[in-house]
Design a protein around this nucleic acid. Structure first.
Lengths: 257, 257
DNA sequence: TTAAACTCCGTATGGCGTACGGAAAAACGT
DNA sequence: ACGTTTTTCCGTACGCCATACGGAGTTTAA
């Protein structure tokens, strides 16, 4: 990445705060950066990041491929802009009630966001982009754990745990959804090819616990292996653990150290 | 995906159990499937999944591109084989001691594995491959939570939570590591381009909590934002929550329902 | 001895990101 | 009013990618 591109992208990220630079000399732009970003989001929503391409973004806007590069430095920078855009898409709900309620809302907000834009979990920026909506998100998350008796470090760690767990659970959920929907081969065909091998190979008693507990046989699919249910279960355990940390703490109302 | 490819891949996954088919008529293969898989792992370890290509695997083996397709149906199937291979790479440690100790070992095993092969988190199979090592992994994880007073459903949910959280935390850790190492632009240059914009834009008091808690200023980087530390912190909270679930449960020694 | 099956690989197709440079359009300096 | 400068839009080209197809050569089975 070029340093100039980095600077250009930072200015694009904060374009609302900074205002439009003005005074551009050439022909007017046919579309706007926002439209490019929104088109990018539409493509990624529809096809995922691997199939996301500059050509498809251009097509969607009625532009030719290379014109996109006058709006945005390149593919990865556009993706950075798309991320900050969707982070600001739904206003952050007010955080009220108990710590547990606030963290439940915060985690649910993330969970919904990942499911609305599954490609978020495919983003692999070598540098994190610091944009307005990402910054507001972090501030909002911290406000959920402010003044409950956690140190500053613990405040960061608790939000990190919630984020990491939610991301991991959402990843499982989204992979399962893709398997069910888009696999190019029907469930029946899949079992038709898989079952004979598994029968030869999984001698009785080889996997006793998996057989009893697991979804391997495809039974009880509504309970075992239901990602949303697992997410809720895990979040409850996590919140129990956070509350346990605060119980029996001397200065519970004092807040940060 | 073709059904024939699925069948072929299942037979490759379970090749150790099934034995080599024998009786092949043409010239002998110059290398083995295992070598192809190991070469693939080497490429992915070195460059990550996006840069992983069939050409590079072929080059590494002294073969020409198209010969790889006589060993393996295609790119995504090869990746499936690579995944099951690395899952079997390190023997699963014996699970002894308390539930807490067993789950700590299980989570740590996953954590290490993700860091040894960061591309595991980039794998997006539309169908999960059921291979020998993945199956053994699930059985091993279930054995960590067997007969402690959890229902079958809860056993699955607890292992799922541990997996999801560990995957999410490892993802954060690996992204942070990549940012530090491989970003093509130095930390100094990055700040040089980023700081001026942030100074203009982050008016004093705009992000009070982030400023106090966060790493935004790059201070205290050893504590706040240390992924390994966050992982350990979160795991402790999670395990506290799991133990709380078991406390005050009538038939603690009875096991599953 | 012939036929079948298999490996290895050359070629071609259709995708991708993006570097480069040219034509046209708009605004600025004079 | 008129060049000059800047900017947009885009055609072309390069070097990647996965993989479909078919041919040549090799080994075994019939």
């Amino acid at each position: 990445m070029e340093k100039a591109d980095l600077d250009r992208t930072m200015n694009l990220l904060w374009r609302r705060t900074l205002g439009t630079p003005q005074g551009s000399r050439g022909p007017r732009q046919r579309v706007s950066v926002d439209e490019v970003i929104r088109a990018g989001i539409a493509v990624a929503d529809a096809e995922g990041l691997p199939a996301f391409s500059m050509r498809k973004v251009a097509d969607r806007l009625g532009l030719k491929l290379m014109s996109i590069y006058t709006y945005v430095p390149g593919r990865s920078e556009l993706i950075g802009l798309m991320v900050d855009e969707v982070v600001g898409e739904v206003p952050h709900p007010a955080l009220t009630g108990s710590l547990r309620e606030r963290l439940t809302v915060a985690a649910g907000h993330l969970w919904d966001e990942f499911h609305r834009h599954p490609w978020l979990l495919q983003v692999e920026a070598s540098r994190p982009w610091i944009g307005p909506n990402g910054s507001a998100r972090y501030e909002w998350q911290l406000s959920a754990v402010e003044a409950v008796g956690l140190t500053d470090l613990e405040m960061d760690q608790v939000t990190t745990v919630i984020n990491d767990f939610t991301a991991g659970a959402a990843r499982s959920s989204i992979l399962a959804r893709r398997a069910a929907e888009e696999s190019g081969i029907s469930d029946a065909e899949w079992w038709e090819a898989t079952a004979p091998v598994l029968e030869r190979v999984m001698t009785p008693g080889a996997y006793p616990l998996s057989g009893r507990v697991g979804t391997a046989a495809g039974q009880e699919y509504n309970a075992v292996g239901d990602p949303a249910r697992s997410f809720r279960f895990g979040l409850e355990r996590l919140l129990d653990g956070v509350e346990a940390l605060l119980r029996d703490r001397p200065s519970a109302a004092e807040g940060h150290v």
